[in-house]
């Protein structure tokens, strides 16, 4: 036995010994992993396999190869859905980065610690309201006799009043407008944490160099919280591509297909039309897109750690 072999053997036995010592902890992890496999990994893997079948979710099943994918990419409704998804994603990335960042900068630059605390709480409170409540409230606000149209009427702009969610030209922008002023609490906290982590010496130097106000934000703050910005961008991309609950509640993809997105099409095909195979194909396509973005996410998060190191 060479020295190298004996070192490897000794490392192996040490590892086994460590595992044995911590066997209770390993055993405690088993249920979590089993659930992960059962509820996260297994459905995803079966969806890949099912996407190659015409399958109704119960009894009818026929192998059709890439037929579902072929249908998906030649279906004008799906093309519209992907276009809507792209538009919404671009819009959401902009507003979910810019406005929380703006909010974080405003709070960060407050001189009073009490005021900082107060505004931080105010911005975060909406986080505890269930999303469905917010969405139903917005649906009410967009109604023909909802507050938005009533405001327009009072302001003498009654001719602009409309059923916003039923208007082909305004339905998609109306979806984007939901949540105004768009201070997403999670993103806001990430940015605020990043700003708080900037060393005071850097800020003092910037002040001495004459970098104040907007100039400091652009020249100092943003470069120093770039890691957080990248993280928020990637997370927003992922959430936007998966998003369909909001559309389901607000418009159900209508009027026509004006607000249809692939996630909703997946849900409808799988659970309403009994076309589980086709729904799986849409899900697989979204999974591939998300996988690419998750890879980007991991890469950016890693670069952030490296930066800190």
């Amino acid at each position: 036995m060479s020295i190298r072999d004996s070192v490897t053997a000794s490392k192996g036995s040490r590892w086994l010994k460590q595992v044995k010592q911590s066997r209770i902890l390993y055993l405690l992890l088993v249920p979590t992993f089993l659930m992960l496999i059962a509820f996260n990994y297994w459905p995803a893997i079966t969806a890949l396999y099912r996407s190659l079948y015409a399958w109704d979710g119960a009894f009818y099943q026929q192998f059709i190869g890439l037929g579902n994918f072929q249908e998906m990419f030649s279906d004008p409704i799906m093309i519209t859905s992907f276009r809507n998804m792209a538009l919404l994603t671009m819009g959401w990335v902009v507003i979910r980065v810019v406005f929380p960042l703006l909010g974080a900068e405003l709070v960060f630059n407050l001189r009073s610690a009490w005021a900082q605390y107060f505004y931080r709480v105010i911005f975060v409170i909406p986080m505890v309201i269930p999303q469905i409540v917010t969405l139903l409230l917005w649906r009410f606000m967009y109604g023909m006799y909802g507050p938005i149209n009533e405001f327009l009427r009072v302001a003498g702009l009654g001719h602009l009043a409309r059923g916003w969610l039923g208007d082909f030209d305004f339905a998609l922008p109306a979806i984007l407008f939901v949540g105004f002023p768009w201070i997403d609490a999670f993103n806001f906290l990430i940015f605020l944490a990043g700003l708080i982590a900037i060393p005071s010496s850097v800020l003092e130097t910037a002040l001495l160099e004459g970098a104040v106000g907007l100039r400091r934000i652009v020249m100092v703050d943003i470069p120093l919280i770039l890691g957080q910005i990248k993280l928020v961008v990637v997370l927003t991309l992922i959430n936007s591509i998966r998003e369909y609950q909001m559309i389901l509640v607000m418009t159900n993809g209508g009027p026509g297909w004006a607000t249809m997105v692939p996630g909703l099409a997946m849900y409808q095909n799988a659970f309403l039309y009994g076309r589980m195979g086709y729904g799986s194909a849409i899900g697989t396509t979204l999974f591939v897109i998300l996988l690419g973005l998750t890879y980007l996410n991991m890469r950016y998060v890693q670069s952030e750690i490296e930066l800190k190191a």
């Binding site: 967009y142 109604g143 023909m144 409309r162 059923g163 916003w164 969610l165 039923g166 208007d167 209508g254 009027p255």
Partner: peptide, 16 residues
Amino acid sequence: FQPSHLSDDEEMAYEQ
């Protein structure tokens, strides 16, 4: 139909 019919569900139409 009312101008907002494409944004009105049954409950909203009934209310009108």
